[in-house]
Design a protein around this nucleic acid. Sequence first.
DNA 1: CAACGTTGTTTCAACGTTGTAAACAGGGCT
DNA 2: AGCCCTGTTTACAACGTTGAAACAACGTTG
Lengths: 333, 333
Amino acid sequence: MGTSLRDVAVLAGVSVKTVSNVVNGYAHVAPATRARVEEALARLDYRPNLSARNLRQGRTGVIALALPELDAPYFAELSRFVIDAAAEQRWLVVIEQTDGSLERERQILDGVRDHRVDGLIFSPIAIGADELAARTDDTALVLLGERIHDGPADHVAIDNVRAARDITEHLIGLGRARVAALGAQDSSISGTAPLRLAGYRQAMAAHGLPEIVATVERYHRADGFAAMTALLEGERPDAVFCFNDLLALGAMRAVLSSGLRVPGDVALAGLDDIEDGRYSTPTLTTVAPDKSELARIAVDLLKRRIDGRAGYAPQEVRAGYRLMVRESTAPAG
Amino acid sequence: MGTSLRDVAVLAGVSVKTVSNVVNGYAHVAPATRARVEEALARLDYRPNLSARNLRQGRTGVIALALPELDAPYFAELSRFVIDAAAEQRWLVVIEQTDGSLERERQILDGVRDHRVDGLIFSPIAIGADELAARTDDTALVLLGERIHDGPADHVAIDNVRAARDITEHLIGLGRARVAALGAQDSSISGTAPLRLAGYRQAMAAHGLPEIVATVERYHRADGFAAMTALLEGERPDAVFCFNDLLALGAMRAVLSSGLRVPGDVALAGLDDIEDGRYSTPTLTTVAPDKSELARIAVDLLKRRIDGRAGYAPQEVRAGYRLMVRESTAPAG
DNA sequence: CAACGTTGTTTCAACGTTGTAAACAGGGCT
DNA sequence: AGCCCTGTTTACAACGTTGAAACAACGTTG
């Protein structure tokens, strides 16, 4: 094991506690003593043992970030911001992947205690609000990007309904009449899918247009590809709002490989603003959630929960977003 | 704080150590006692305090994974596998991002001790072999995906030279004569860039073809876009081996938006096999490193270092890869 | 029946840290 | 000299866990 306070204390000819005081920046230490201790600290290259410190303080300095899958670009990009925001609190982030499985999500929710993390930022897919509310654990919890009705925990997300309505309005504004929604889900009760669908419906209803809805299992390129291929076989839509960018990129591939043009024959829009969509051909119109803001708010909420053990009511916070119009919905197409 | 061994011990009417023994599956515990203790454990929903356990055992059960950036798809995909492989050892993974900055890489290398992780899987970009060798820290270290000549630590990667030669041969095999390499770097001494460049050169030399080399700063789509745009302004290549898939996707965008066709006018190949390339239009030919194998080997090497404190010589391990031929190098194009 | 091994359980100490409280030194005041 | 400040330093205990060693009870063996 490395050098401990004791080692430094011996070298500096001072008590262990005094060294601790210097390390922690305690005010009343005589300049001469402080200098001597700092000299010794430097000489022995002292690093505090976090296990011991945490044991003593009942904190671990580690938070968990639980999300469906790290290799979905949206979550990877989001993770980066969460890690950066957490670093400012001097927190480490461990990442847990649920693969969207209910069982894994239960484990996470139940099992964070095993790892003794101070808090959890959770982006659930499968688990329901009731189950969330029923948890006995009192570890600080913040829900990210998932609307849980009357949630039992702090929650941060963009306004999914409004964002979906905005982008659908944009498609309608191109003069397209057969605007489809791609990404509805049968299973999910608590997910974002119903919200985005609701936004789509509001826009379609406002213009008296017929709804065309394609459902998917998951939110990967492959699902978008399959759903779009199916859509093309029926009465073809001339615009499609895909519930995330991966679906849109899969759909784009399907349209293009069927010999049709984007946006000439079919305009496409997504949601997430992952980097891929800025370099696809054509580039992808999308809604860009402010990921940095999402992450920062999530970390702030968590910090407040962890610090003030007071049980104030769960907060609901909205992060901003922007509409990014690109080639896949260019009017001239 | 949660329930401790002491609480359980009191409830079961037994000593703390006996509870500890039950928890740890120690053999010689009377069945009756064990039953009573387990009953108490369940009733109080006991979870071991990892900080305490780690303090006692000098292990944290946490490893760090340091990589340039999580939102580069290759690293996101790799991380997933590392996390999964680590989970099998009941390890948690904290992720540190270096952004490829030398300073951050130094911090990581020096600072892992701050966090008291048991080991580090490190994918460096900027740092040199000499500096790696000079580190005083004795934390277990495994280098991932980066060839450090005569490295001071275990190292796992694919055979970059051979992979680069293979893919270049494939491009030449299409009958293209002006085959460019995109992704060389001025700065990097120890990176993979020189290796991939070497592989390219071997293949070009073997066929007596002239080398065309484009350098980049970093390995993002934007760099690929810029470098390709520059290449197109000169005497145009008819095939390009990009040193990673992001570069290739950026390059593809540049070719397509200049009005040329892929692979008709320019064939493109990458390296990494990120998911994006399987859904781009055209789909991207690439080299697919066995990421799962890379991750598993890295974790295994690290485990061996952590367990056996014996200082055996640094290991050099090669993981497999496959050539994935897709539309961007289709012969009929 | 004494010595011994086995099984089951406990006591003790230690991992490195920090909050509490108390001890100590020096200076200014009565 | 005795007192109370203020500033500085220290002893002690505790966080929850587990390895080492001790101990008790019991059956086996010579």
